[in-house]
């Protein structure tokens, strides 16, 4: 989006200096968004504690190794909850956050300034990346310290981690941005956006292994990105030992990449066609 100055009428002062660049303002918005996020203590606690509490809960209940593999249940949950945590930061927090921005006048105010609209989205992406990264670090620390999770030593595993993380965060963030237009107000946003996310977690193999799920549910889950993100993270953190636990006895990394990339493109199209800068009450 390079909607730079094209007006013809000279102003008394503004014409002498160039407009600040979208990237610079995007970084500036990222800093401000992150600062505001960490000052809102309730949201910080809500965002970070959910996957952590679940990991500790499941890790305590289902201790011990899984039959026929060298993988423990808690390692499985660590990988799954990293996927859920990334999705939570991108889809849930961002979706609710943008719905709030639309409701409280943030979007309207920004639309009335010379800020390029792309700067708002750059800021949100930076904010989501920071949150998701911290979430992953915390979950990995718990996994390593409490549940004997081994961090992979090969570079190739971390390369896999990097692309699964980036594609996953981006896709989730774009979906979160698109879904933010659904709730009628900020008050209903938490319910409207959290509900599908919780359902998705249950059918995407975060909590319940696919081997215990009916085929039609697996088929539904396979449409959405969370299943593939978790599968990618399992490939990184469970390694070759865990592959036998997968439905197809393989992590199918090529399909993970394909479907996550498809969601990035689809999410982008959805955002560009449905994003509203105005609240419903603004008409």
């Amino acid at each position: 989006m390079t909607d730079t100055a094209t007006g013809t009428a000279p102003s008394r002062t503004a014409a002498t200096r160039a407009m600040p660049s979208a990237l610079k303002l995007g970084l500036s918005r990222g800093a401000v968004e992150t600062k505001m996020f960490f000052r809102e203590k309730d949201a910080v606690v809500f965002t970070f504690s959910f996957p952590i509490i679940l990991l500790m809960l499941f890790g305590s209940i289902f201790a011990g190794p899984l039959e026929g593999s060298g993988v423990t249940v808690s390692q499985l949950y660590t990988a799954g909850l990293i996927g859920a945590g990334v999705m939570g930061a991108g889809f849930q927090s961002l979706g609710i956050g943008i719905a709030g921005d639309r409701d409280d006048g943030t979007l309207k105010r920004l639309a009335g300034t010379p800020m390029p609209r792309s700067a708002y989205f750059i800021g949100k992406i930076i904010n989501v990346l920071v949150i998701a990264f911290l979430e992953v670090v915390i979950l990995l620390a718990i996994g390593v310290l409490m549940y004997d999770l081994d961090l992979p030593s090969q570079v190739s595993s971390w390369v896999t981690f990097a692309w699964v993380f980036l594609l996953g965060v981006t896709g989730a963030a774009l979906l979160g941005t698109a879904v933010s237009s659904l709730p009628r107000s900020a008050k209903s946003a938490a319910a409207v956006i959290s509900m599908p996310f919780v359902v998705l977690q249950f059918i995407s193999g975060v909590f319940i292994p696919f081997t215990q799920m009916p085929e039609w549910l697996i088929n539904i889950a396979s449409v959405f990105p969370l299943k593939w993100m978790c599968q990618g993270f399992r490939a990184v953190f469970l390694g070759a030992d865990g592959a036998s636990l997968e439905l197809t006895k393989s992590y199918e990394l090529d399909r993970v990449a394909l479907i996550l990339a498809a969601w990035v493109i689809g999410g982008l199209v959805l955002c560009l066609t449905t994003f509203r800068w105005k609240g419903r009450r603004d008409g």
């Binding site: 730079t4 100055a5 094209t6 102003s11 503004a14 006048g105 943030t106 309207k108 009335g112 010379p114």
Partner: peptide, 17 residues
């Protein structure tokens, strides 16, 4: 345009952002 927006100032009715 951005250039035009930089020449006007808008004070909105309700903003709690």
């Amino acid at each position: 345009t951005r250039e035009w927006r930089s020449r006007i100032g808008i004070v909105l009715q309700t903003a709690n952002d």
